Simulated scan of single mutants.
Amino acid sequence: MREFANLAEVAALQGQEIGVSEWILIDQARIQQFADATDDQQWIHTDPVRAAAGPFGCTIAHGFLTLSLIPRFFETAFRIRSVRMGLNYGLGRARFPAPVPVGSRLRGRFTLKSCEPLSGGGAQISIEVSVEREGSDKPVCVAESLTRQFE
């Protein structure tokens, strides 16, 4: 995990990679839990037998499951010691260029796009998150994450 003393230290790295998370395993139990939480029970995600005969040869994770892991990736990629609270503010463009087959390991790679001061303290940070699948050269998700960080 990469550590920064404060927001000013992060802001100086615009356009640069600021962290890479640990790997997370995407097993069938995690996919099923997401399907249950969102009521998205499409067979390509939840039926291993039917999915084996489908286009990917196995079940695949929901794109939104992959997207929802971004906050978890943040936790192991970098930390700003002076920040007392952070809030998800939203997402910019998000896309899913490749599927996530069951059994895949994923991690997030974070590149700082901008770090803009907020009135009253703190900053709004825009980060491009590229979610990688171990063994693949194509990302499975690329999204702009917007957070507000308060010192």
Rank of each mutant, 00 (worst) to 15 (best):
I80Q: 01
R50K: 14
A29F: 01
S145N: 13
E132H: 11
L67F: 04
Q14P: 09
I80L: 03
R109T: 13
L69E: 05
F74T: 09
D27P: 04
S68N: 05
I127C: 06
A51I: 08
I127N: 00
G15I: 12
I60N: 02
G135F: 05
V10K: 05
T59S: 14
R79N: 06
S104T: 12
K138M: 13
Q149M: 15
E144G: 06
E132P: 08
A52F: 00
T38M: 05
E3M: 04
F73A: 08
P48F: 00
V140T: 15
I18G: 00
W23L: 11
A12C: 06
S119P: 12
T38D: 06
Q124S: 08
P101D: 06
R2S: 01
F34L: 04
S126A: 15
G63Q: 13
Q14N: 05
D40K: 03
R2Q: 13
I125V: 15
V102C: 11
F73K: 07
V131D: 00
T76A: 05
S114Q: 07
I44E: 03
S114Y: 00
G15C: 10
H62S: 12
E116G: 02
E132M: 15
A94T: 15
Q32N: 15
I127G: 00
C58R: 11
A61N: 11
I18P: 00
I125D: 00
P55C: 02
A98T: 11
Q14G: 12
V102L: 04
I26P: 00
G90A: 05
A52L: 02
D40V: 12
A52G: 13
G86A: 14
L118M: 10
E151Q: 10
F96N: 09
E3C: 07
P97G: 06
L25A: 13
E128A: 05
R81S: 12
I26W: 01
G135S: 09
I70A: 03
P71R: 05
V142G: 01
L67M: 10
E134Q: 15
S104Q: 07
V140S: 05
I60K: 02
Q149W: 12
R105K: 15
G120I: 06
L13M: 14
R95G: 11
P99E: 13
P48K: 02
P55I: 09
A77C: 07
P71F: 04
V131H: 00
A11F: 04
G108L: 08
L25G: 07
F150P: 09
E116D: 14
R79C: 09
C115G: 05
F150W: 09
L25V: 14
F110E: 03
H45K: 08
C115D: 04
P101R: 04
R95M: 12
I125E: 01
T46S: 07
A8Q: 14
F73D: 10
R109H: 11
L25K: 10
R79Y: 02
R72Q: 14
E17G: 08
D36N: 11
P99W: 02
P48N: 03
A35L: 05
E144H: 03
L13Y: 04
M1K: 03
R105V: 08
